[in-house]
Each structure stands twice: as C-alpha cells, then as structure tokens.
Amino acid sequence: MIRATAGLLLAWGLAGCAVPEWQKPGTPLADIERAMGRPTLTQALPGGGQRLLYSRQPAGQQVYHMDFDAGQRLVRVAQVLTLERFQALRHGVDRTEDVRRMFGPPALVEKVARFNGDIWTYRILDNGNPRQAHVHIDPSGVVRLVMFTDERLDAPDPHH
C-alpha cells in the first residue's frame, strides 16, 4: 500500500514539473505535448497556427493559452484567467463558444432562481486574492452578465 501510494505521488509530482510559463518560445509542439500532457482544448489559429489550452480548473486558478505558429513552434504562453479578460466579455454579443474558447470549461455550472440560464463559474486569482468569475449565459447561449465574488477558502464548514 505504501509503495503504491509513493508511486502515485512520484508520478503526480513528475507530471507537475512541466510548468507552462517555463516553456521557451521556439519549442516544437510535440515537445510541449510530451512535457505538458494532453491539452484541455485545441483550436486552430489564423495563418495555420494552433492554440493548446491547458486548464487547471476546477481546483486550480489558471488557464493557459499556448500559441504555436504554422511551423508548430511555440510563439507565446498566456495565463488568461484574469479579471480584465472576464470584464472584456461583451454582454449580449459573446456566446457560449466564445467563453469556452477563451477560458475552457468552467469549474462549476449552476442555476439560480433569479436568472433564466446557466452560470459558469471560474476560479481566478485577482492580485493574489482568490475570487470567482460568474458568467451568466442565457438559454440561447448569449452572455448576459459577468459578476465577481471573493472566494473564502478558509470559511468554516457550516455543518460542524
């Protein structure tokens, strides 16, 4: 049992060694995938390039875009779960696909009585503070509202 647990911890630790921000421009796509593993999403970019999206949701607070040129070489890495990017969503214009393309799948999808539609919740860091971005998407798939709340990680369990 101890040996199996140690093996799992070692595998988990080695998988975590590949950090998106440490990848160098010019690195071939195949090397990135070998180091980072399978991306959460893959999308075509203009000019024959490709974007790999790596999400740390639902437990983490980062989503990375790793952009490659037509020659499959890394051009840039960006962490996109930022307050500014959520604030840039266009209410009444952007759609479910736009949100998924930018941020990947949410940490949580929920409903509330006062909104007819889904609320996609993403865990983010805002100047080092844990927060949540709540994207309200109506039944036709259109973004209607984006709200932010603080995430209380040290909140006492109300059941104890």
Rank of each mutant, 00 (worst) to 15 (best):
R51V: 01
R76L: 09
L9E: 13
A11T: 15
A15V: 13
A35I: 03
L9V: 15
P28A: 08
T27A: 07
D31I: 04
P20V: 06
E21W: 03
P46K: 11
Q23R: 09
Q23S: 13
V19P: 08
A35M: 00
A11Q: 09
R38T: 15
V19F: 09
P20W: 01
M66E: 05
G49K: 03
Y54Q: 05
G60I: 01
D31N: 08
A30L: 07
P39E: 00
Q62E: 11
A78N: 14
G60F: 03
A35V: 04
R38K: 14
L89D: 04
P39I: 00
Q50S: 14
L10V: 15
Q50P: 10
P58W: 03
L29W: 02
T40A: 05
T40D: 03
A78H: 12
Q43S: 12
R76F: 06
Q43R: 13
K24R: 10
R56Q: 10
K24Y: 06
R56K: 04
V80F: 06
I32S: 04
H65R: 02
F68L: 02
W12R: 10
V77A: 02
P46Q: 13
L89P: 08
K24T: 14
A59V: 15
D67L: 02
R73Y: 03
V80L: 00
L8V: 14
V19A: 11
R85S: 09
R85T: 10
L10G: 03
W22H: 09
F68P: 07
F68D: 02
T42F: 03
G48F: 08
L45R: 07
V77T: 14
P28M: 01
E84G: 10
Q43G: 10
G13M: 03
L10W: 12
L74Y: 05
K24M: 06
R38Q: 13
F86E: 11
P25I: 04
T27F: 04
L81K: 07
V63N: 02
A70P: 05
A88K: 08
L81Q: 07
P58L: 00
P46G: 09
R56H: 10
A35K: 09
L8H: 15
V63Y: 00
L14I: 13
L74W: 02
Q61A: 14
A30M: 05
Q72N: 12
L45Y: 00
P28D: 08
A44E: 12
M66N: 06
A70Y: 04
G37K: 05
G48D: 07
R51A: 02
L29F: 07
A59R: 12
D31H: 06
Q50N: 13
L29H: 09
L45K: 05
V80R: 00
G47H: 09
L81A: 06
L81Y: 01
Q61S: 14
A70L: 02
C17E: 13
A88L: 05
T27Y: 01
R51H: 02
D31E: 11
L45F: 01
W22L: 11
A18W: 05
P28Q: 06
L10M: 12
L81W: 03
G60V: 02
G16V: 00
P46V: 11
P20Y: 01
Q43E: 10
P25N: 05
H65T: 06
A88D: 12
P39F: 00
Q72M: 11
L8Q: 14
Q43I: 03
Q43N: 10
Y54K: 00
Q23L: 15
H65I: 04
L29N: 07
P46R: 11
